[in-house]
Simulated assay, not measured.
Amino acid sequence: MRDYSIRAAGPDDLDGARAVMLDTVYRDFGSGYVPRWHGDIIDPATAYLVPERHTLLVALDPHSGEVVATGALDSRGPAHPPNPRHVAERYPSGRTAQLRRVYVRPEHRRRGLARRLVAELTEFAVAEGGYRSVYLHTDPAVPGAEAFWRSLGKLVHDEREDPEGASGVLHFEIPMGR
Rank of each mutant, 00 (worst) to 15 (best):
K154A: 10
S93C: 11
L14K: 04
H80N: 14
R18Q: 13
E164S: 10
I6S: 08
A9R: 01
E123P: 05
A72V: 04
G32Q: 11
V68I: 04
V126I: 10
D43T: 05
A59P: 07
E52P: 06
R76C: 05
Y135A: 01
G144P: 12
V68C: 01
T138A: 03
D23A: 13
D158A: 05
L99C: 02
Y26T: 10
R27H: 12
G65H: 02
P44D: 01
M1N: 15
V102F: 06
G94E: 05
M1I: 14
V34Q: 14
A125G: 03
P82W: 12
E159W: 07
G32P: 06
T122C: 05
E120R: 15
A72R: 04
G16R: 00
R53P: 01
R36G: 02
R101T: 02
P81C: 06
V169Q: 02
G10K: 02
G32V: 06
E128W: 04
G10W: 04
G16S: 03
V134L: 10
R178P: 04
G71Q: 01
R53M: 00
P82I: 11
A8M: 13
M21G: 03
Y103F: 15
M1F: 14
L117Q: 04
E107N: 09
A119G: 09
Q98C: 05
G177F: 03
V126E: 12
P35N: 12
G130W: 06
V58C: 01
P106S: 08
M21C: 07
M21A: 09
I42H: 14
A125D: 01
L49W: 08
P35E: 13
D3Y: 03
R150L: 11
P51N: 10
Y103A: 02
P92F: 05
M176L: 15
R7C: 10
T122D: 02
T70C: 03
I174E: 00
F148R: 06
G39I: 10
T96H: 10
D162G: 08
F29A: 03
H54L: 08
S151C: 11
R90D: 00
W37C: 03
G112T: 11
R160T: 13
S167E: 02
D12V: 12
A69Y: 00
V142W: 09
P81H: 09
Q98V: 06
L136F: 06
H63M: 13
G65W: 01
V104A: 03
P51C: 11
D43Q: 07
A8G: 12
M21R: 02
D74W: 06
I42Y: 13
H86P: 07
L136M: 07
E52W: 04
E123R: 15
F124S: 08
I174Y: 03
E120N: 12
G129E: 06
V58Q: 01
G130L: 06
P163T: 06
D13N: 05
T46W: 12
S133G: 11
R115F: 14
P84G: 05
V20K: 00
H108N: 11
Y33C: 11
E123D: 14
T138Q: 04
A147P: 05
I42W: 15
E159K: 14
V156D: 00
G129T: 01
A166H: 12
H63Q: 14
A47C: 08
Y135D: 00
A88W: 01
D13G: 03
L99A: 02
A127R: 09
T70R: 00
G129Y: 11
R116V: 07
V142K: 09
D61G: 11
